[in-house]
Structure formats: structure tokens, C-alpha cells
Simulated assay, not measured.
Amino acid sequence: MQSRLLKRALIIFVAGFILLLIGLAAAWYLREPAPPPQSRIDGGSTGEARIGGPFELTDQNGELRRARHFSGQYMLIYFGFTFCPDVCPTALTNMTQALDLLEEGAPAKANQVVPIFITVDPERDTVEEMASYAEHFHPDLVALTGTKDQIAAAAKQYRVYYEKVEDASASNYLMDHSSYIYLMGPEGEYLTHYTHQTPADELAEGLERYIK
């Protein structure tokens, strides 16, 4: 009798533990933005990656920029915000260093790449703020901002997740956002993506491999 009770208790314990693991896994999955699908060129899904599209934003010089203005060039795009404490600076620094490495090894290919930074925090990231921030990174960096609707439209095209994280101080809030560096082809087609943690040398190798 006692053996049967112990066996039943063990079964209940194991079942409960499994349910707990399933619950934790589900919570993590819902919290973490899913990475964008791979295009055929990456050896992933054979379907066409639905990433990228038209946008209309303003650069750090106050000039209107549309996606079609970059036609014929490879766009290296990152969405973030200037008040980001570490993730965004890391991504932009890696982009800068990767382009410097590409310039050393394959200058003709480096000239075909336009690094682009698009804010997800238009409330604080004004044209002036973007201009000041862009000076810390690659000299060719195009820093884009716009209205809330324009940013939302651009983020939707690139499947970028972002959300304002409220803080006690209204001016010191953070932005929770996905952190991918997209490489787009000369016709605006999605080629591949990297993360903000991709080392500069690895990113440079990837650029050299994709750029014709």
C-alpha cells in the first residue's frame, strides 16, 4: 500500500515538473521576439523572406530619405535608439568596424554598402539628436528618424519588435526592441541578418561573401 502511494506521488511530482517546464518554455517563447526567417540564399527556408520594403524617413541632416534612394546599394540596417545603454552602441560599433575591415580588404565592395540606423524612439530621437549620435560611428552612417507612424511603418516592414518600457521618470525610459542587423540587396531584397553580438570580423566576412 505504501509502495503504491509513493509511486503515485512520484508520478504526480514528475507530471507537475514537466508542466512547469512547459509553462516556462511557453513564457520565454512569447517574451522573446522570434528571429526573422532565412531566405533561400542562407540555406534556410525555401520561401521568400518577407523582410524589407518602402519607408519614408528623415536623416540626420534633415533630408527626406526613401528606401528607393538606396537602390543599387547594399543596405546594412539596424533599428535601435540613441538612449540605449549598451546593445545599440555594440551593434553600431560592430557595423563600423566591419565596414572598416571590408574597406581594407575589399574597398570596391565596401563602397557599395550604406550603414543605416533607424530609431524606434522618435519621441526623443530628433534630427539633432540623431546627428550628434551618428558622429560616434561610421562616417557614412545614415541615421533616420520620423513620426511615430513613419517609424511604426518602417519597423513593420522589417518585422522589428519594439515597445516603450515605462520608468519612474518619464524622460529616462528605455525601449525594449529586437536587435538584428539586416543586410539588404541592391534591389531592396533581404539577404541575411546578424545580431548585435556578431563580431566585426565575422560580419565583415559575411558582407564580403554576399556583396558581388
Rank of each mutant, 00 (worst) to 15 (best):
Q2N: 15
S3D: 15
S3A: 15
R4D: 13
L5Y: 01
A9K: 10
A9Y: 12
I12D: 07
I12M: 10
I12K: 00
F13G: 08
F13I: 11
A15D: 10
G16F: 07
F17V: 14
L19Y: 11
L19S: 09
L21I: 13
A26K: 14
Y29A: 11
Y29P: 01
L30K: 13
R31H: 12
E32S: 05
A34D: 10
A34T: 12
P36E: 13
P37S: 09
Q38S: 05
I41W: 04
G43C: 09
S45L: 09
A49I: 03
A49D: 04
G53K: 11
F55T: 04
L57V: 10
L57N: 11
G62F: 06
E63A: 14
E63Q: 14
E63C: 00
L64T: 15
R65K: 15
R66L: 00
R66N: 07
A67K: 14
A67Q: 14
R68C: 01
R68Y: 12
F70R: 08
F70A: 06
F70D: 11
M75W: 09
M75H: 01
M75Y: 01
L76W: 07
Y78I: 07
G80E: 11
F81S: 05
T82M: 03
F83A: 10
D86N: 03
D86C: 03
C88L: 03
C88F: 07
A91W: 11
A91N: 09
L92P: 00
N94V: 08
T96C: 02
L99W: 09
D100M: 08
L102T: 02
L102P: 02
E104A: 15
P107N: 03
A108T: 06
I118N: 09
V120P: 03
D125L: 02
T126E: 11
Y133S: 06
Y133A: 03
A134M: 10
A134K: 11
E135H: 14
E135C: 07
E135D: 12
H136T: 12
H138W: 07
D140F: 08
D140W: 09
A143Y: 06
L144R: 09
L144Y: 05
G146Q: 12
T147L: 07
K148E: 15
K148D: 13
D149F: 06
Q150V: 09
A152N: 05
A152C: 01
A153S: 13
A153E: 15
A153H: 11
A155N: 05
K156A: 13
R159G: 13
V160P: 08
Y162I: 04
V165C: 00
V165G: 06
E166N: 01
N172E: 13
Y173D: 08
Y173W: 04
M175V: 15
D176F: 09
H177F: 05
S179W: 07
I181C: 01
L183Y: 06
G185N: 00
P186R: 14
G188W: 05
Y190G: 01
L191T: 01
H193W: 12
H193C: 06
Y194Q: 08
A200F: 09
D201R: 13
D201K: 14
E202T: 14
L203A: 01
L203H: 07
L203Y: 02
A204C: 04
G206F: 06
L207I: 03
L207Y: 04
E208G: 13
E208W: 01
I211G: 01
I211N: 02
I211H: 00
K212I: 06
